[in-house]
Amino acid sequence: MGNICSRSKNEPESFTTPGRVLGSNPSPAPNKPAGPRAPLPAKATTGRPLGGGGAPGAGDDTADARSNAAIAAQKRAESAGGKGKLGSKLAAQKAQTHTQTLTEASRDERAARDADNAASARRWE
């Protein structure tokens, strides 16, 4: 019953025939043309190579733009006039003594404990 859909003109399965030795690829048919091939492109000069400064002649422009941006950022940082909010907080933390740091941590822990106790009282625990 298995041969109901099979015909004798079907090609044999791929692995039923013996194999051939590596490198003994059959040569192409002599009457079959190789087909049209696209011409190989000439070496491209557009774009820029990875990791480089860019296309020839364009590297100076990008280097100048980058250095100008760095100089402008440096001037903005210097003209900010002080350290700003975060800088002043950091300076205040660095100026604290060990005792002041421990006192502040203890105060924070007490506040958290008091908040937890108040929450449990609201829940009637």
Rank of each mutant, 00 (worst) to 15 (best):
K75S: 07
N25E: 13
G53K: 03
A92G: 05
S14W: 03
P33A: 06
S79F: 07
E125K: 02
T46V: 13
N117R: 02
A38D: 15
A92M: 04
T101N: 03
A72I: 03
R66Q: 14
L22N: 13
D116M: 03
A112V: 12
K9T: 04
P41H: 06
A72R: 10
P56Q: 12
N31L: 06
A112K: 14
A112Q: 14
G87D: 04
Q74S: 10
N31T: 13
K94F: 00
R110C: 00
A77W: 11
R7V: 01
T46Q: 13
S106V: 00
A70F: 02
K83C: 08
A44L: 09
E104G: 01
A95R: 08
E13M: 04
R76C: 13
S6F: 02
N25I: 05
A118E: 14
Q96C: 07
K85T: 05
A95V: 00
L40E: 10
G19C: 03
A95D: 11
R122W: 04
F15I: 00
G35N: 05
K43A: 15
S106C: 02
T46M: 09
L22Y: 15
K85A: 02
G52C: 09
D114G: 09
G52A: 10
Q100E: 15
T97M: 01
R122D: 10
G2L: 14
A44W: 02
R107D: 07
G53A: 14
S88K: 11
L50Q: 14
R123D: 08
A63C: 00
D64Y: 11
P26W: 07
S120P: 00
K9F: 07
D64H: 05
P33H: 04
Q100Y: 05
P56E: 12
E11D: 09
T45P: 06
P49L: 02
T97R: 06
P28R: 12
R107I: 01
K94D: 04
D114H: 12
S27Q: 07
E125V: 02
T101P: 03
K94Y: 00
P12S: 10
A34G: 10
R122C: 01
T45K: 07
N31D: 14
E104Q: 07
S106E: 04
P36H: 11
E11T: 01
I71E: 13
S14G: 00
G81N: 12
D114K: 09
P18S: 01
A42E: 14
R122I: 05
S6C: 01
P28L: 08
A69N: 12
S79P: 00
R20K: 10
T103G: 01
S106Y: 01
K43C: 12
A65D: 13
R107W: 06
G2D: 15
A115L: 14
T45S: 10
S79R: 07
T62H: 09
A58S: 15
P12W: 02
E11F: 06
E125T: 11
R123C: 03
E13L: 04
K32S: 04
A80I: 08
N68M: 15
R122K: 14
R76I: 12
R37G: 01
A29D: 15
P56A: 07
D116I: 04
E104V: 00
D116Y: 05
A105F: 05
D108I: 11
Q74C: 08
E125Q: 05
G59K: 08
T46P: 00
D60Q: 03
A105K: 12
L50Y: 14
C5S: 15
A119C: 05
P39Q: 11
D116W: 01
P18H: 02
L22M: 11
V21P: 06
N10R: 03
S79A: 13
P33D: 09
